[in-house]
Amino acid sequence: QRITLKDYAMRFGQTKTAKDLGVYQSAINKAIHAGRKIFLTINADGSVYAEEVKDGEVKPFPS
């Protein structure tokens, strides 16, 4: 399943989102408010992988 960072954070909370991605909650808040195009893939085992689309390139998040 693929979902935006904002939607994932709204569904699970910023604290869990940060923990799942290995970053601080403040980084999640800042990324959402900056309007960054970050998409999360939720794997069947429950693990989460995030990618950011920037300038036409897709890069892992966090980099």
Results as ranks from 00 to 15, higher is better:
residue 1 Q to Y: 12
residue 1 Q to K: 09
residue 1 Q to I: 14
residue 2 R to S: 09
residue 2 R to K: 14
residue 3 I to Y: 12
residue 3 I to G: 02
residue 4 T to I: 05
residue 4 T to N: 08
residue 4 T to M: 07
residue 4 T to D: 06
residue 5 L to E: 01
residue 5 L to F: 01
residue 6 K to D: 08
residue 7 D to E: 14
residue 7 D to C: 09
residue 8 Y to Q: 01
residue 8 Y to D: 01
residue 8 Y to V: 00
residue 8 Y to W: 03
residue 9 A to M: 12
residue 9 A to E: 07
residue 9 A to Q: 08
residue 9 A to F: 10
residue 9 A to R: 06
residue 10 M to A: 15
residue 11 R to S: 09
residue 11 R to T: 11
residue 12 F to E: 07
residue 12 F to C: 05
residue 12 F to I: 04
residue 13 G to K: 01
residue 13 G to Y: 01
residue 15 T to M: 14
residue 15 T to Y: 14
residue 16 K to G: 03
residue 16 K to I: 05
residue 16 K to P: 02
residue 17 T to M: 03
residue 17 T to W: 01
residue 17 T to L: 06
residue 17 T to P: 02
residue 18 A to Y: 02
residue 18 A to G: 05
residue 18 A to L: 02
residue 18 A to V: 02
residue 19 K to W: 08
residue 19 K to C: 12
residue 19 K to H: 13
residue 21 L to W: 01
residue 21 L to M: 04
residue 21 L to C: 03
residue 22 G to M: 06
residue 23 V to A: 06
residue 23 V to G: 03
residue 24 Y to D: 15
residue 24 Y to W: 12
residue 25 Q to M: 09
residue 25 Q to T: 13
residue 25 Q to W: 12
residue 25 Q to H: 09
residue 25 Q to R: 11
residue 26 S to W: 11
residue 26 S to R: 09
residue 27 A to C: 15
residue 27 A to Y: 13
residue 28 I to M: 05
residue 28 I to K: 00
residue 28 I to A: 01
residue 28 I to R: 00
residue 29 N to Q: 14
residue 29 N to L: 12
residue 29 N to M: 13
residue 29 N to C: 13
residue 30 K to Y: 10
residue 30 K to L: 12
residue 30 K to N: 14
residue 31 A to C: 05
residue 31 A to R: 01
residue 32 I to R: 01
residue 32 I to K: 01
residue 33 H to L: 14
residue 34 A to P: 02
residue 35 G to R: 09
residue 35 G to S: 08
residue 36 R to G: 04
residue 37 K to T: 12
residue 37 K to Y: 07
residue 37 K to W: 06
residue 37 K to A: 13
residue 38 I to G: 00
residue 39 F to V: 07
residue 39 F to M: 08
residue 40 L to Y: 00
residue 40 L to I: 15
residue 40 L to S: 00
residue 41 T to M: 10
residue 42 I to N: 03
residue 42 I to G: 02
residue 42 I to W: 06
residue 43 N to V: 08
residue 43 N to C: 12
residue 43 N to I: 07
residue 44 A to S: 12
residue 44 A to D: 13
residue 44 A to E: 14
residue 45 D to T: 05
residue 45 D to P: 03
residue 45 D to I: 04
residue 46 G to I: 02
residue 46 G to A: 05
residue 46 G to Q: 06
residue 46 G to C: 06
residue 47 S to W: 06
residue 48 V to C: 06
residue 48 V to S: 03
residue 48 V to A: 05
residue 50 A to K: 01
residue 50 A to T: 02
residue 51 E to Y: 09
residue 51 E to Q: 07
residue 51 E to V: 11
residue 52 E to Q: 04
residue 53 V to Y: 14
residue 53 V to W: 14
residue 53 V to F: 14
residue 54 K to M: 12
residue 54 K to G: 10
residue 54 K to Q: 10
residue 56 G to I: 04
residue 56 G to P: 02
residue 57 E to Q: 13
residue 57 E to I: 14
residue 57 E to A: 11
residue 58 V to H: 10
residue 58 V to D: 04
residue 59 K to F: 15
residue 60 P to N: 06
residue 60 P to A: 08
residue 60 P to L: 07
residue 61 F to H: 02
residue 61 F to C: 06
residue 61 F to P: 03
residue 62 P to W: 04
residue 62 P to N: 04
residue 62 P to D: 05
residue 62 P to H: 04
residue 62 P to A: 04
residue 63 S to T: 13
residue 63 S to V: 10
